[in-house]
Amino acid sequence: MTERPGGYALNAPQEASPLHRPGARGRGARSNNSGRFEAQGREAFDDGWTDADGEPPKLATLVLRDASKSIISTNQSPDISFDQSINPYRGCEHGCIYCYARPSHAYWGYSPGLDFESVIFAKPNGPTLLEAHFNKAGYQPKPIMIGANTDAWQPLERERQHTRDILKVCARYKHPISVITKSALIRRDLDILAPMAADGLVRAAISITTLDRKLARDMEPRAAAPHRRLETITALKQAGIPVTVMMAPVIPALTDHEIEPLLEAAAEAGADNAAYVLLRLPLEIRDLFREWLADKRPDAADHVMSLIRQMRGGKDYDANWGTRGRGTGPYAKLIASRFRHAIKRFGLDVPRQALDTSRFARPLGSAGQPSLF
């Protein structure tokens, strides 16, 4: 383990890699350019002194303590199905090249590129902050989404267990939650989630972008393999937890041909319903994704970007509410139509159940419910 000021590197090589360098084995981004808020910009270039074997370097994961004073984030977006969420980590080791959370890393002075997937902010005091929030006078419970921005069950969670500790708080207070992940690690926590589901307190979503193992490894280098995600759907369903499969994102000319087989596989695994989001390329994600295409799918790069622009009014991205997740134009309408018919065909149209807020109760001995003794 390599020590660094302000945090530590997890499973680091003997020599920790610098934070700003081009490419890295096992990572999604191809570059690590400075964030948009930095006074001075840094951009990698090839000066001819590459490794003799041409292999990119390994990159250690640096874990920093998140000093936030609150644990629940809120939003007022009209096209998001939840208005409050918990993210036990900022940044995500999964390294998905398309991740819409990447630009947020620029706010903390880090790159949305390699930094996003190798410099992770962890919230060890999350359970304490959450319990204090539940104990506030007049608190009214409503469902909380866990893992909305970055994956709450990313590889770091295996050792840190901040997400599991947060789940324990929710279970003790009988607080309703939704969870979303692309990690099979969630199965570790079925001992907490299954009893909550029996009380109508949990529903889950599993994100599957593609069934193609090679494409998944290139695009989501540290996420669970597609077949493991299907197995996770089955495990959650068998534990009594309602499951949605999220095909997110749908990428034209790369994954859109998989709509029907992916939904069929999810239905066979036990999913109740399905949803999708069209690829979004806001801010730095645009250049990161185009770099990835040029490196990993050069033959398809121009076609992919052309179709994206056809669905974004001629631009790489359109941030308008209501259409940012679906796109516009004939090709976007075709995707929506295919998805709608596939849902009906494979029986993925089970209505999503409302979570039960009436069971919320402060346990005896908590700050909000003093002991009688």
Results as ranks from 00 to 15, higher is better:
Gly54Cys: 08
Glu258Tyr: 05
His257Thr: 07
Ile72Phe: 02
Glu3Lys: 12
Ala354Phe: 03
Leu230Ile: 05
Leu167His: 08
His303Arg: 14
Tyr89Val: 07
Gly35Asp: 13
Gly327His: 04
Ile335Pro: 02
Phe346Trp: 08
Thr323Val: 15
Asp53Phe: 10
Ser77Lys: 12
Gly54Ser: 05
His227Asn: 12
His257Trp: 12
Ala332Leu: 03
Asn320Pro: 06
Cys99Pro: 05
Ala16Met: 07
Gln353Phe: 04
Thr255Ser: 05
Arg217Pro: 00
Ala67Ile: 06
Arg25Gly: 11
Lys333Leu: 12
Ala122Leu: 02
Pro141Trp: 04
Arg326Ser: 12
Glu260Asn: 02
Gln353Met: 02
Phe45Ser: 10
Glu220Ser: 09
Asp47Phe: 04
Pro22Tyr: 05
Pro282Asp: 07
Asp66Phe: 04
Ala235Lys: 03
Thr163Gly: 04
Glu159Ser: 15
Gly48Gln: 11
Phe45Ile: 08
Phe116Asp: 00
Arg25Ser: 14
Gly138Ser: 06
Leu355Ile: 02
Arg4Trp: 14
Val250Cys: 03
Leu236Arg: 00
Leu279Ala: 06
Phe116Ser: 06
Asn135Lys: 01
Asn149Gln: 03
Arg290Phe: 09
Pro282His: 12
Asp295Arg: 12
Thr163Ile: 05
Pro298Asp: 10
Val304Asn: 14
Gly7Met: 07
Leu10Pro: 02
Leu288Ser: 03
Gly6Glu: 15
Phe116Ile: 00
Leu201Lys: 07
Gly26Gln: 04
Lys136Asp: 02
Arg228Gly: 10
Glu43Met: 11
His257Phe: 14
Asn33Cys: 08
Arg27Gln: 10
Tyr8Trp: 15
Lys69Arg: 11
Gly322Met: 14
Arg65Val: 08
Leu230Ser: 04
Leu307Gln: 15
Gly322Phe: 14
Trp108His: 08
Ala265His: 08
Asp79Ser: 12
Leu263Cys: 04
Ala223Ile: 00
Leu364Gly: 06
Ser178His: 06
Ala29Arg: 00
Trp49Asn: 14
Ser70Asp: 11
Phe82Asn: 01
